[in-house]
Simulated scan of single mutants.
Amino acid sequence: MEETVDLRDYFGIVKKRFWIIALITIISVVVSGVISFFMLSPVYEAKSTLIVNTEKNEETQMITGDQFSVTQKLAVTYGEIIKSRTVLDEVIQNLKLDDKYEGLVNNVTVSPVKDTQIISISVQDTNKEKARDIANEIPKVFKKEAERITKANDIQVIDKAILPQSPIGPNKKMNMALAAVIGGMIGLFVVFFIEYLDNKLKTPQDIEKHLGLPILGVIPNEKLER
């Protein structure tokens, strides 16, 4: 006998043990909230920007297209120099930080601004003053190293990093919303897994469905008064 799948069966399974899904979802959201609000430290981000200039054409006193293209490629190269061990180790030494290179490099993001000669340096840290100081110290060290390595002749700071006022993370609402989704999915898995393990025949329809036997009669489950 071919077995058909009815969506109402699935809705029935969910409805019967919906309290399990709700409980797991609530626990997930509460745990996420406790971690986000009381255990995770706020993360601050400080930014500074640099501009990589190039020599102008001596005849026209203007930057040619080729020179501009080369400068943009240099901006990518400079980004790798900024995150190099030589630069960041000196930053650590100058600011007397307890960080190691492997830890600091993960907190530094260097992004060449598209179609410009500008480089953006972002530093994230749980200490806002520390993030600002690192974002301002990196350009100083980098400029010296760029002149030594690539013979760069004109690198200027556009904006110095200022003290960030508001943290960028953790995103508490997003964490709790994500926890609710994951909790609901885990709850559904648990409910269907319990249903899969439950192989009892509870209704006459279960006998017909799973054993393929016709129902001849049903004995009512009633308490007879004597």
Rank of each mutant, 00 (worst) to 15 (best):
1 M>W: 02
1 M>P: 07
4 T>N: 10
11 F>V: 10
12 G>S: 14
16 K>P: 07
19 W>N: 09
19 W>E: 05
20 I>L: 12
21 I>W: 05
22 A>R: 02
24 I>H: 00
24 I>F: 09
32 S>P: 04
33 G>K: 00
36 S>Y: 00
36 S>A: 14
40 L>E: 04
40 L>K: 12
41 S>D: 12
44 Y>K: 07
46 A>Q: 11
49 T>L: 01
50 L>K: 02
51 I>K: 07
53 N>M: 11
54 T>G: 15
57 N>I: 09
57 N>V: 07
60 T>C: 05
63 I>P: 02
64 T>Q: 07
65 G>E: 11
67 Q>T: 13
68 F>L: 15
72 Q>K: 14
73 K>C: 00
75 A>Q: 01
78 Y>C: 03
78 Y>I: 11
79 G>C: 01
80 E>K: 09
81 I>N: 00
82 I>M: 10
83 K>C: 02
83 K>F: 03
84 S>G: 08
85 R>W: 05
90 E>N: 12
93 Q>H: 12
95 L>F: 11
98 D>K: 15
100 K>H: 13
100 K>C: 03
101 Y>T: 09
103 G>I: 10
103 G>F: 13
104 L>H: 06
104 L>V: 06
104 L>F: 07
105 V>I: 15
107 N>S: 15
108 V>M: 08
110 V>L: 06
112 P>A: 08
117 Q>L: 08
118 I>C: 02
118 I>D: 00
119 I>K: 05
123 V>K: 01
124 Q>N: 12
127 N>E: 09
127 N>L: 05
128 K>Q: 15
129 E>G: 11
131 A>T: 07
131 A>L: 06
133 D>Q: 15
141 V>K: 05
142 F>K: 00
146 A>F: 04
152 A>N: 15
154 D>S: 14
155 I>M: 10
155 I>Y: 01
159 D>M: 02
159 D>C: 08
159 D>S: 09
161 A>S: 10
162 I>Y: 12
168 I>L: 11
169 G>W: 06
171 N>F: 08
175 N>C: 07
176 M>P: 01
177 A>Y: 09
177 A>W: 08
179 A>E: 08
180 A>H: 05
181 V>L: 15
181 V>F: 15
182 I>S: 07
182 I>Q: 01
189 F>L: 15
190 V>G: 04
194 I>Y: 10
195 E>K: 05
198 D>C: 04
198 D>W: 05
203 T>D: 14
203 T>I: 02
204 P>N: 13
205 Q>G: 13
205 Q>Y: 10
208 E>V: 05
216 L>R: 08
224 L>E: 14
224 L>N: 12
